[in-house]
Amino acid sequence: MRKVRAAAAPYLLALPAWIWFAIFFVVPIAAMASVSLTTGNLLEGFQQTFSFSNYAKAVGQYHTQLIRSLIYGGIATLIMLVLAYPMAYWIAFKGGRRKSMYLFLLLLPFFVSFVLRTISWGFLLADDGILFGPLKSAGLLPGDFHVLATDVAVIGGLVYNFLPFMVLPIYVALERVDPRVVEAAYDLYASRWAAFRKVVLPLSLPGVFAGVLMTFVPATADPVNARILGGTGNTMIGNIIQTEYLTNNDYPTASALSFTLMAVLLVGIFVYARSLGTENVLEAAAR
């Protein structure tokens, strides 16, 4: 009896998490799947018709925004990778005793709300705001110069908001690289560049993999940056889903769009994991 109880202990300990997971993830997903297969409107009510017409409508009508979201998310992720890797590298190898302080600085913006931070970026980038206003009156920039309501503003906002999620996993992976292994590479005639390319970089790939997942998915689905920093031509799929739900009350279309986005992201992740060599990544990550 005691043995049985001991064996059951881990499961019992995980039970609250499982219940939480069931109520806040499985149930909503199932409900949304069901809603995505209904037809009707808010006034006359929705009927479960198991019709896939919502999906056809979603993709047919909003593929532009869907593709734009993937492109924005992709570009933002690439920029974040380029910015984050040197940052993580520097903190991990040159941070010395101040490592924790640098990490704290990295996370400091999180003490301010996500939306507020994005709005303040809006102020900074406003056509006659504190940054461009003086430059324009000084004649250093043409009068019609603007950044707000462009691709640049939206992608810039995404990069700014999600950068720490790229830095942290890469930092963790780099931190775990044994400095003696890097010394061994130098000892075996590797130049600094060769030691990085052949030893440090491969050993940090699990962090890069995690960082890309943690930034690409939320950046692609994000509605806030496009709404605050973008114009009509920069609408992302997150904005459409929000509008369909909250303004148009077209729950079936919004649900179908959400599922389409999820499916596209899942397929993307799968292909990405495969091409990067899941086995190697998982193997290295398991170490």
Partner: peptide, 20 residues
């Protein structure tokens, strides 16, 4: 002369093999 240009090699205490 830096280590990568010296004709000596080292066996490290913890071996420091390349794990990947």
């Amino acid at each position: 002369v830096p280590p990568n240009k010296r004709d000596v090699n080292m066996v490290f205490q913890s071996y420091a093999l390349f794990p990947h």
